[in-house]
């Protein structure tokens, strides 16, 4: 089953560690380069992690993001994320020499669990029906 479509799977392991797997076809690499006006062979493969807590992500509106440079030979990465109890998605793509990021594939959203008890002690009670 080597014929993967373009995919990025983002999975939470625990409150701070995540796993990302991606596949970007050569055709998509070429298309992203053409559309962005850059040579993918000269660009840096990059993972961009977005904080998308409580928003509908449109590629541009994340609360913040950070980048991880990756080798074109690999297809997965274990990534530590400092802030637990937030929602994230990941993009695999290219960063050009000018610093512009061109995503090739976007992952699902993950919700990192809280790393301790909730600060909220508001209580509501329900009857099992």
């Amino acid at each position: 089953m080597n014929e993967y479509p373009d995919r990025a799977y983002f999975l939470p392991k625990d409150p701070h560690w995540t796993f990302i797997w991606w596949h970007v076809s050569p055709e998509t690499v070429e298309r992203v380069g053409l559309e962005g006006g850059f040579d993918p062979l000269q660009a840096q493969w990059t993972l961009r992690i977005h904080d998308v807590t409580d928003i509908l992500f449109d590629d541009t509106n994340s609360h913040f993001h950070f980048d991880v440079d990756i080798s074109p030979e690999i297809d997965h990465w274990y990534l530590e994320i400092w802030a637990a109890d937030r929602n994230y998605c990941a993009q695999a793509g290219f960063k050009t020499a000018a610093g512009r990021f061109h995503p090739a594939v976007t992952s699902n959203t993950i919700c990192l669990p809280r790393d301790g008890p909730s600060a909220s002690n508001e209580e509501s009670w329900t009857t099992l029906t």
Binding site: K13, F19, H23
Partner: peptide, 15 residues
């Protein structure tokens, strides 16, 4: 958490 079922020796099966 999920460490036992998602780590270097078994993550290959998910994709």
């Amino acid at each position: 958490y999920s460490e036992s079922w998602l780590m270097g020796r078994n993550h290959w099966l998910y994709p």
